[in-house]
Amino acid sequence: MPRRYDGPWLDDAAGRLVRPYTVSGGRTRPTAALDLLSLVRATGTVPRAHLGPEHTLALGLCDGPTSVAEVAAHMRLPAVVTKVLLSDLLDCGALTARAPRSYDTPTDRSLLEAVLDGLRRRL
């Protein structure tokens, strides 16, 4: 009896059996502007339109604030495909997105102090 997978179809020798192009419905551009560090979160709204299993998996990963990069890593999909899936969920109201916090300069003193404080707590 063949093994049943909860996630995307995988074959130990061949890898992913469903190509990323198929997962995104052939689309290569998301409708929403998402950065890899954008935080997405489920709203609790159930999408009215039928979405694919990848959409359901992505939505399940977004119970709390989760970065686009993290969702892509968990789903083992290219970032652009993940952005397309997440933008579909944004369009139907199932997700909200927040842009990453921007700093005026990459060497902002408050940012560096926050990183240093975090490192001290971990050590």
Rank of each mutant, 00 (worst) to 15 (best):
V46Q: 09
P2F: 08
E54H: 12
D12W: 00
A13L: 08
P100T: 00
T96A: 12
A42P: 11
D108W: 01
S67W: 01
A73R: 08
H74K: 13
L59C: 09
A42I: 02
L112W: 08
T105N: 15
T31M: 11
E54F: 03
R120E: 09
G118K: 07
V115R: 15
R19M: 13
S67N: 05
L89I: 03
V80L: 09
V40P: 07
P47H: 06
T56Y: 11
L86I: 03
G93E: 05
G52E: 10
R4N: 11
A49H: 01
S102V: 15
G26C: 03
M1G: 13
W9L: 14
V81N: 06
R4P: 07
A79D: 12
H74T: 10
L116I: 05
A69Q: 06
R3G: 09
R41V: 01
T105H: 15
D104T: 15
P106A: 04
R76H: 04
L95E: 05
E113C: 11
K83H: 14
L89Y: 01
T45P: 13
R48K: 06
V68N: 06
P106F: 02
L85W: 03
A79Y: 08
L90K: 06
L85E: 11
A97H: 07
S38V: 05
A99I: 04
L77Y: 00
V18P: 04
T82D: 09
P30G: 07
A73I: 01
L112C: 09
D104E: 14
M75F: 03
R98V: 06
L119P: 12
A99S: 15
A13W: 03
V18H: 03
D88Y: 00
S110F: 11
P53D: 15
S110V: 14
A33M: 09
R48Q: 09
R121A: 13
P78V: 00
V68S: 00
G118P: 09
L36G: 13
T105W: 14
L119S: 02
E113F: 04
M75D: 09
D6H: 08
V115W: 10
V80F: 10
W9D: 13
D11Y: 00
L119V: 07
L86T: 02
A79K: 12
E70R: 14
L77T: 01
K83E: 12
R41F: 02
T45F: 03
R122K: 14
T105D: 12
D117N: 08
D11V: 02
L37M: 08
D11T: 01
T28K: 11
C92Y: 01
S110E: 11
L34W: 04
D91T: 13
T66P: 08
D88V: 02
H50C: 12
P2A: 04
R3F: 04
